[in-house]
């Protein structure tokens, strides 16, 4: 399969983030988007019409934070800026980051 190692996430105000595919797959929503015959699956480009740039940036930071710490215990909590906390909460809900992601389910 010619899937690239990276995918691109686009916020509604046009910011683009290139993320490690494996890291982004902890999100149920992104996994569903990249599976099957969607446009996203072919281009590796996911556009989010409801997430602002700064919020998506934090989400991307979280993907890498989670990916880097996936096998460790006593992981220090990531810092969440208070001002975008609610928006981030909505984004986390939208992306299906509510329960503990299962790394081993990922294929």
């Amino acid at each position: 399969m010619s899937d690239s190692k990276y995918i691109t996430l686009v916020s509604y105000d046009g910011f683009e983030f290139v993320v490690l595919r494996e890291a982004a797959l902890i999100s149920e929503t992104i996994r569903a988007m990249l599976r099957g015959a969607f446009k996203e699956a072919q281009t590796g480009r996911c556009e989010f019409g409801e997430i602002r740039g700064p919020v998506l940036e934090k989400v991307v930071e979280y993907f890498h934070y989670y990916h880097a710490n996936r096998d460790q215990t006593d992981v220090p909590d990531m810092d969440i800026p208070v001002d975008i906390c609610l928006e981030l909460l909505m984004a986390a809900d939208f992306l299906g980051l509510d329960s503990r992601p299962q790394m081993r389910d990922l294929s």
């Binding site: 989400v59 215990t73 909590d77 990531m78 986390a92 980051l97 992601p101």
Partner: peptide, 10 residues
């Protein structure tokens, strides 16, 4: 094991 979910962090 691993980090907390983004939602619980928020």
């Amino acid at each position: 094991v691993g980090g907390k979910s983004l939602m619980s962090l928020c």
